[in-house]
């Protein structure tokens, strides 16, 4: 075991950790918002929007995230030269850093998985609660915002910690496109120093700490929420 490289790479690892957390936080928040829309499209949408939402969720859940990321980054990249004028006039789009593709791929992925869960949660809210809202004259939007969504959110909260950890566990894939996340930094050490185990073990420990932090964070939130559940 050799650890003398740690000081030299501390900055790179810290920056990588920041990128990993950025990817996690952005994709969870944006992905969740998208998931609510996907779920609503399935439980309340018309035939077409419900079908599209269902297809999207199946696609995300049925294919490896690695391939989704490659399709988004290299697939789309290979299309640029085919469209005349893009390279000259849409420089910013062509030059878009890989991190944006990563954020997009991870957001869509989280949305696909969480959309399915939110759909179940929306359907599990007792009809009576919604009818009560209607009876006191709430509009459809008010019912959604005040009753349906909060109720569904309470239901998914216990599973959400697991989902976020799942998302954290997929973030190392970001290094397969040119993004220097935590894994990317470890990978750099592996390349520069011809080491395998030490950098991997170090990031493994960091991931363990992050997992633990997410678990405790969520149980803290759960305790804050008033509930009549016996447990």
């Amino acid at each position: 075991m050799r650890w003398d490289w740690v000081p030299d790479y501390a900055a790179a690892l810290a920056h990588g950790l920041f990128i990993t957390l950025l990817v996690l936080v952005v994709s969870v928040f944006l992905g969740f918002a998208l998931a609510v829309m996907l779920a609503l499209a399935q439980v309340r949408g018309g035939m077409i929007s419900s079908f599209i939402s269902k297809c999207f969720c199946n696609y995300i859940r049925g294919t490896p995230l690695l391939m989704q990321l490659y399709l988004l980054y290299y697939g789309v990249g290979s299309l640029f030269p085919l469209i005349p004028g893009v390279r000259e006039h849409l420089q910013w789009l062509v030059r878009l850093d890989a991190i944006y593709y990563v954020l997009m791929a991870f957001t869509l992925s989280f949305a696909g998985y969480e959309g399915e869960i939110m759909r179940g949660a929306f359907l599990a809210v007792p009809r009576g609660e919604l009818e009560a809202g209607e009876a006191i004259g709430m509009s459809g939007w008010q019912i959604l915002r005040r009753i349906w969504l909060p109720s569904a959110l309470y239901k998914v909260l216990p599973t959400l910690a697991g989902e976020v950890i799942g998302q954290l566990k997929s973030t190392p894939l970001a290094f397969t496109v040119p993004v220097m996340d935590l894994m990317g930094a470890a990978h750099k050490v592996m390349q520069d120093k011809y080491l395998i185990y030490e950098p991997l073990l170090l990031v493994a420990c960091i991931y363990l700490v992050l997992t633990w932090a997410i678990t405790s964070g969520f149980s803290l939130i759960e305790r804050q929420i008033p509930s009549r559940r016996s447990v």
């Binding site: 294919t63 391939m67 290299y74 299309l79």
Partner: peptide, 27 residues
Amino acid sequence: TQQAAGVSKQYFVIYLVAQGIYLSISL
């Protein structure tokens, strides 16, 4: 998929086809 895409340079099509295969396995 990567090898085929890299040699043929048809990244988009090849990746789409591969995803289709994964999707049919899972469905």
